[in-house]
Design a protein around this nucleic acid. Structure first.
Lengths: 216, 216
DNA sequence: CGCGGATTTGAACGGAGTCAATCCGCGTGG
DNA sequence: CCACGCGGATTGACTCCGTTCAAATCCGCG
């Protein structure tokens, strides 16, 4: 996901400019011409793929250090929309310049490949979640994955604030918002978490993790 | 998905050796060390990611010209298993050599990036399928996608032989094998297709395509 | 020719969706 | 300052699609 500090310095060398986004503002839309990748420096974004008839599915939640836009390379057009979930700041990484530098700097080339491959692995994880897990397992997996990502970034791994609505979480997990809401309540009753609106505290991460692997 | 003839010639230059696979034989397993990508020259393979407790989910069906193994780059280990669905032949493309050549030959570099990005787009399509579609829509989408891929390769786009069992198809689509079987029967009763075992004929591709987009 | 895996089909169950009512929190304007 | 409005969240009742369990049949292959 994120890159090492060493690599960040390399990245800095090819940064174009920065873009400020207000909450709810789109960085790009599905169908827009692809020219660059974007590194998140402040805030968080969701990506959503069009699902016909104006509907859409949330395909990812991205935070500090994440690099987005990778799916646009093949068609030269973005396949999804990226929207700020809060006021955010992203760096523009012109892709042509990335390719140039990747040719000259092998470690950067490797990082790029790893980045792309990691995204593939991430997507496979989501496919597994959507294809084989029950609703409760999905939400548990989601909460744990968030915890791990916050931890990596130096934040608390047991307490965080959701940036997405119940509906967006549901869309991401292939569930309806009512189901997500009910599961939050159930997890709270079972003493696994404490929820209040978007504030979440994981009271029993171990039990939560077990939930992911079991058939209930 | 596949590459142009021009590119295939480039690829040929970096081919290692060939591997012959018998039906049911694995090209690699999840956890195996990653060293190369593989181009399918004859036959077809499925990829499957482990899903805990010996279970697994089919994550892809790959045929002539497809290149597999992309998810192993980031961790240097394969994240899934690749198994031949029939006697097959694959070319080994040592990844180190690919990276070398990509540095020297920009068009090859671009192809590699496109390849990786295309895989991400494909996965997003599957996520959409698993996250938003009903069972009937999923199978219809699957049948159509197969038709398109066969067409691209010069085969009939309305008549083909499934290489996967009902169970494997179900696993790929997030359904149980009984559901897949029932849907085949229903589609046949509705005059959309003709099925006999693994032989499928699309009688009304247009209606089938409509099925994907509607809420039933 | 017979075995075993794959497929089909039926009946009953249950988990998540749908529809609907209510509540909560927050920004906005009177 | 506070009442109002509105989007988001919660909760309940009921429905329905896909699963589960079970049995029968088909079929490829040794």
């Amino acid at each position: 996901m994120g890159l090492e500090t060493e690599d960040l310095r390399q990245i800095d060398a090819l940064v174009g400019h920065r873009i400020r986004l207000r909450k709810g503002e789109a960085l790009y839309h599905a169908g827009d011409r692809f020219t660059a990748l974007y590194a998140i420096r402040i805030g968080s974004l969701k990506t959503a793929v069009p699902a016909g008839e104006g509907r859409e599915q949330v395909s990812g939640y991205h935070m500090l250090g994440d690099i987005i836009g990778l799916d646009g390379i093949s068609t030269e057009r973005h396949g999804c929309q990226a929207m700020a979930l809060e006021d955010s700041d992203v760096c523009v990484l012109p892709f042509e310049r990335i390719e140039e530098m990747a040719r000259a700097v092998p470690p950067l080339q490797q990082n790029l490949h790893r980045l792309l491959s990691k995204e593939i692995s991430r997507d496979q994880g989501v496919m597994l979640l959507l294809g084989t897990m029950r609703a409760g397992q999905r939400l548990a997996a989601f909460l744990i994955s968030l915890a791990e990502r916050y931890k990596q970034r130096g934040y608390s791994s047991t307490e965080y604030v959701l940036r997405m609505t119940r509906e967006e979480i549901g869309s991401y997990l292939g569930l309806k918002l009512e189901t997500v809401s009910r599961l939050f309540s159930r997890f709270q009753n079972e003493g696994l978490i404490r929820v209040q609106g978007r504030e979440v505290k994981l009271l029993d991460p171990v039990a939560l993790r077990q939930r992911v692997g079991q058939r209930a």
